[in-house]
Design a protein around this nucleic acid. Structure first.
Lengths: 273, 273
DNA sequence: GAGTGGTCTAGACCACTGT
DNA sequence: CAGTGGTCTAGACCACTCC
């Protein structure tokens, strides 16, 4: 029963009979038309909510969800940040880390940073290819919407402490936001980032996570681990960030090397399996 | 009540008191210890299921979910496929499209392909930067596990028909799998792919989607749109694929251009905001 | 057959919304 | 205020699993 009610409503949404923003029939109406009690209808509503199709409740009727506009985060930023390291200070200073991350000015956000030096957990050590328990600088930060207190961005970065001891200021949270971002910070100790690997997965938020981000039900989180590899092949930083999937699109640009000349479309091209 | 039950169980899972594979207390036990009726416990179970933390039911007790091992899909494949176009036929033929996609041999999968030429919808036309209604070659394919019938891979590709009319064989599904993949197919009509953009989002599957992929509750889908840009800047193909997020990791490698020389760590490096 | 979760009924009370 | 969905009770029956 409950799955049939949910299927029927989903069909009507997919067919456009119920457009985004439209109210659904009330629970009582549906219970009457399906000749069942209230509970199955409520469970059907729950199902559609966990699938991200409807929102609402608490005095207001349930509503077909309008997907929010997506913010695009592009991997082109990696190269831009690298280029910025060589730019004069004035230019670098104009672009703080917060801006690079969130495309808004620093002042618009409440910015929280926690720095500490901790022994590497097994997971972190494995990802950095260092030995477990070795010291790593952990930098956690968070942007909060000053009005609502809702989290808008979050990330944790791990850098092996041994790689950056030459510049003690890198351990000082008071220097954040560093003009030019992490790549410039690393450049002060002779590290040039040559390759960045983004590892993307997705998962459902737990209840406290959903509260932090003010996520409606049915919205997954995108998890992105960024691994930076330097000129010696060392993994110099891993940075874990999460983004609400309904308002985020991650773009990755892969430039391909040009062929020396156009491939010969000769005799061998009448081949297929 | 139901949220407190769920929170408590989640805590015990996160703390490791309940390890993956362990059985949870039964609904009746929990109802007794929390001094409530069965329904709140059942709703709490539902919640944890939609968060991907537990599985089970149908006569068996609920168990803490063991996350499956993740298959990594790397963007390095883009360059590999391009290099393959210039390789001799023998080498290309050894690597069918199916293999590139799923890292298994073709024979292990039931392979379904549907080719047709359709007018571009508004969404497709916008993504390809062509006019709405223009003809596009649509190639949909699907790999099914021959034993279970469960979908293991799926994608839809759209190519403007005008770009590839010179080689009618590209419209023939009988030529699939084409040795060397899409980039080789495009090379036969003089198209060299110079840049690939992967656009990644995530969403919850609807009930029929979850059935197709045999997804446990609480597992999102990763959606990846691949846009191929050729040597003239034209968007020559968009390919939409989906992957179950619990068993997939998408890797994107961004090589950075080397600095002409090490940046000068001179006086201006005692700068911060 | 005993025990499990899955579904359902027919009520009840609450918090919240709109007018 | 009436109407909405959110939560809860105290039962019932079912399908399934394990022994």
């Amino acid at each position: 029963m409950q799955v049939r009610i949910a299927d029927d409503l989903r069909l009507r949404i997919e067919r456009g009979e119920l457009a985004p923003g439209d109210s659904l029939p009330t629970i009582h109406q549906l219970a009457r038309t399906w000749e069942c009690s209230l509970n199955p209808v409520r469970v059907a509503f729950d199902l559609l909510k966990t699938q991200g199709l409807i929102t609402g409740g608490r005095g207001k009727p349930a509503v077909v969800r309008t997907p929010p506009r997506q913010v695009v985060r592009s991997s082109l930023r990696h190269q831009e940040e690298k280029d910025l390291v060589l730019a004069p200070l004035a230019e670098r200073a104009a672009v703080g880390t917060a801006e690079l991350e969130s495309k808004t000015t620093i002042r618009d956000l409440r910015f929280r940073t926690v720095y500490d030096v901790v022994p590497a957990t097994a997971a972190v050590a494995g990802a950095l290819e260092i030995s477990e328990g070795a010291e790593v600088l952990r930098r956690a930060w968070e942007h909060l919407n000053p009005a609502s207190g809702v989290r808008e961005a979050w990330s944790v970065s791990h850098i092996p402490a041994d790689y950056i001891r030459d510049n003690p200021r890198l351990f000082d949270p008071g220097c954040e936001p560093w003009p030019g971002g992490t790549q410039h910070q690393l450049s002060t100790v002779g590290i040039e980032v040559m390759r960045i690997i983004d590892e993307v997965t997705s998962h459902m938020p737990s209840t406290p996570e959903a509260q932090l981000w003010d996520l409606p039900p049915g919205v997954p989180m995108l998890r992105c681990r960024r691994v930076s590899v330097d000129q010696h092949g060392r993994r110099v930083e891993i940075s874990d960030a999460e983004y609400p999937a309904d308002r985020t699109r991650l773009d990755f640009v892969t430039p391909l090397t040009a062929w020396p000349s156009r491939p010969d479309p000769g005799p061998e091209h009448d081949d297929t399996g």
